[in-house]
Design a binder for these strands. Sequence first.
DNA 1: GATAGGGGTTCCAGTGACTGGAAGGTCAAG
DNA 2: CTTGACCTTCCAGTCACTGGAACCCCTATC
Lengths: 132, 132
Amino acid sequence: MNISDASRSSGLPAKTIRYYEDIGLVRPARGENGYRDFSETDAHKLAFLGRSRSLGFSIEECRTLMSLYEDRSRASADVKAVAAEHLERIAQKIAELQALQSTLQTLVTRCHGDDRPDCPILDGLSGEEVAQ
Amino acid sequence: MNISDASRSSGLPAKTIRYYEDIGLVRPARGENGYRDFSETDAHKLAFLGRSRSLGFSIEECRTLMSLYEDRSRASADVKAVAAEHLERIAQKIAELQALQSTLQTLVTRCHGDDRPDCPILDGLSGEEVAQ
DNA sequence: GATAGGGGTTCCAGTGACTGGAAGGTCAAG
DNA sequence: CTTGACCTTCCAGTCACTGGAACCCCTATC
């Protein structure tokens, strides 16, 4: 199938698929006219990549997951390790964002938000103490 | 003061300060030798930028906040609008990450993580239904 | 005066993961 | 034969820096 079909079936933009070929994540065959010719397996791999990326795995992690996916003798523990590490990063990111949210919420709540110029948000950003 | 002093006082790397000058966020004076010469006001602005960035505001938002900060007649409502919009993005990002966390946690929990090759994580990524 | 070191300066390239656009080749329909 | 949709490659841009090269400046010491 052509790249637009591969795009439809995987949900990835054609540009992204070409990029994935560039960096060696997929290696579709080529027709006589130079067009990429994706097999079902290729399409399946692209969908796998799309799902992995949408779960927030980096390209390099996707590369690892792909090779584990293609390795019929891999141990599930190897996969679990990649995923667990990623889970930890997600948890940490959530905690960071929640801290930001709390600080910013405090500032926003304090700001009366009217026509007057004094503003606790700018005061907070300019260095005054921000109590939680 | 020189750039290294400005770096110390603001907590920003010298490279970042130069970059901020490049994009017009600060405009330090120059000495006869061509060295940047930061005033107290410049240093204060840099600290303001550092705090704004660490709260996750984009550079363009920082530019807006800076101009509001320097405008003595601005309305606090203008500032509050920028901050509130940012708060909303933070909340959305947190929600997205929590959804990822939940999906991935389900997969990881199901994976026995031993030497056997069958792995619910890869199955999930390869397209099988992932019940929450 | 030479030298060593620790500043400073500019400019160019790279990061991650694409995305947009230009210039041109290919294909099927009318 | 032309139109328009599709494909190709390659170059540049995104965001917010960061690293490095090549070079200038300042102070201290020998």
